[in-house]
């Protein structure tokens, strides 16, 4: 059995104000990206990209987005992403920028990368803790959360 090959773009939404990420949802990202492809590559590019294009995952807290696209045309989608300056949801504009972190063939590889990336972020941010109490707080929070429930959801998704 031959499957349709896809590419998953793991992107990070850069915003100046973290709380504005809460305003976004899947649909806002979907229409925003589709509009950008349309502006950058015209009707033809938009048509190529719209085959199996989907926003697979959006984390409103960290601003991580998974975009799916067919393998043959993912570069068209990717080259349109830098031109996004803001996303719109229910009439509210959220100025933001897409930063592509990883391009993978399956969600699984993207997830592996994301875990590694997040650990890296934690190491980057830990030195910013002002005192020992804060550091302990972070450690407790990390130990408290478990991936078990999340993994179950991911498996269902796949």
């Amino acid at each position: 059995m031959v499957r349709f090959k896809s590419r998953y773009l793991l992107c990070e939404l850069c915003v100046s104000d973290q709380s504005s990420l809460q305003l976004l949802d899947d649909r806002a990202v979907f229409t925003g990206v589709r509009g950008a492809v349309c502006r950058a590559h015209g009707d033809y590019g938009a048509a190529l990209c719209s085959v199996s294009f989907a926003v697979k995952y959006l984390n409103a807290d960290t601003g991580v987005v998974f975009l799916r696209c067919r393998k043959s045309h993912y570069r068209i989608l990717w080259s349109a992403l830098p031109f996004i300056t803001h996303l719109e949801n229910r009439g509210q504009k959220v100025p933001c920028a897409f930063n592509c972190l990883y391009v993978g063939g399956t969600i699984r590889t993207c997830q592996k990368f994301l875990i590694r990336y997040n650990i890296q972020q934690l190491h980057r941010m830990l030195p910013h803790c002002h005192n020992e109490a804060e550091r302990l707080e972070v450690r407790r929070a990390v130990l408290n959360c478990s991936l078990k429930s999340l993994e179950k959801e991911e498996e269902e998704d796949e």
């Binding site: 850069c14 915003v15 100046s16 950058a40 570069r75 990717w78 080259s79 992403l81 830098p82 300056t85 100025p95 933001c96 920028a97 897409f98 930063n99 592509c100 972190l101």
Partner: peptide, 17 residues
């Protein structure tokens, strides 16, 4: 502005355009 910066890999891809 800070939001006008794009990641290096995005720019490498933008180079194709």
């Amino acid at each position: 502005k800070p939001l006008e910066l794009r990641g290096p890999y995005d720019i490498a891809n933008l180079g194709l355009l």
